[in-house]
């Protein structure tokens, strides 16, 4: 019996990032298990400490990305665990499911208050893969178990989506700051609404939003694809680019962690803190 925290990675029909996501959780000192969408009993019996909804195309984005997945029975369990305070992370398609589940922004639990709409870029529609820079919101850094180690430097991560533009009902626009978790910026940390710094036209440059308590985080970029330093492109500017390039042809490149690892280290650190408090 291990006493490492257990992270459940949910596999919906059409998910496709479940294996690498589970792998980086394990690399971060936690246990990870992948549960298929219909393994409700197995999931609830194993009493996970946290949940990750990985990227992919659940139900092939039919009707609307995340819309059908959000209505699967397994989401009832995630919904209740989220309300009880367990950390839940949705990456890309996982974020779309969380939004369509009404877990984020979660002003009224279960109510659909946001949407991840189709990217809005002049002269272009459809899927977009590219590297972006992110910054964490100050309050989010303090309260979210997923963000505590992120720090203030802009971090490079890749996006890969066709529907990643956060939007809200106009009446809610004045309360967005409560749910702001991650915003797009340039390598110097400067935010602008212009493409490609903001790659999809997202409202207030949002790359990730959370619920009020911060335990549920929905983010469009893929931290598991920036977990290792060697996953960062050779042309990335800024300090992470310097760090990466200083390891050119250095065997240490193989084991060196990248910026995406900070999200998973944050969670491990959060569990350490809880277990210290428990003692």
């Amino acid at each position: 019996m291990t006493n490492k925290p257990l992270v459940a990675v949910l596999q919906f029909p059409g998910s496709n990032c479940e294996y690498e996501t589970a792998s980086v959780v394990r690399e971060s000192g936690m246990d990870a298990m992948i549960f298929r969408w219909n393994q409700l009993k197995e999931l609830s019996d194993s009493r996970p400490d946290a949940f990750i909804l990985p990227g992919g195309f659940s139900f092939q984005d039919r009707v609307r990305a995340g819309a059908v997945g959000a209505k699967e029975e397994i989401m009832d369990l995630v919904f209740n665990e989220a309300l009880s305070g367990k950390p839940v992370l949705g990456i890309c398609n996982g974020a779309q499911i969380l939004v369509e589940s009404g877990l984020v922004p979660g002003w009224e639990n279960g109510r659909i208050e946001s949407a991840l709409a189709a990217n809005h870029i002049h002269g272009r529609s459809g899927y977009l893969s590219r590297w972006v820079f992110l910054r964490a919101n100050e309050r989010a850094l303090k309260i979210s178990p997923w963000l505590r180690m992120i720090g203030n430097d802009p971090i490079p991560v890749p996006i890969a989506h066709a529907e990643g533009r956060f939007v809200f009902a106009e009446k809610d626009n004045n309360r967005i700051s409560e749910c702001m978790a991650l915003t797009y910026c340039d390598e110097n940390g400067i935010e602008t609404a212009d493409y490609p710094v903001n790659p999809n036209g997202s409202f207030m440059n949002l790359a990730g939003i959370m619920n009020r308590e911060g335990n549920v985080l929905a983010m469009m970029p893929h931290p598991e694809r920036a977990f290792w330093m060697w996953q960062i492109p050779p042309w990335i500017p800024g300090t992470w680019g310097d760090r990466r390039n200083s390891l050119q042809h250095d065997p240490a490149l193989a084991g060196s962690k990248g910026p995406g690892a900070l999200f998973f280290r944050s969670l491990a650190d959060y569990f350490e803190l809880i277990s210290r408090e428990d003692q």
Binding site: Y19, E20, L128, S129, H222, E224, R225, W228, Q231, P234
Partner: peptide
């Protein structure tokens, strides 16, 4: 063209199209 492709799923990509 490449900007439409997901070159990084599975988390194993070191050099993407165009980098080398």
């Amino acid at each position: 063209i490449w900007s439409y492709y997901d070159s990084e799923v599975q988390g194993t990509t070191h050099f993407r199209p165009g980098e080398a």
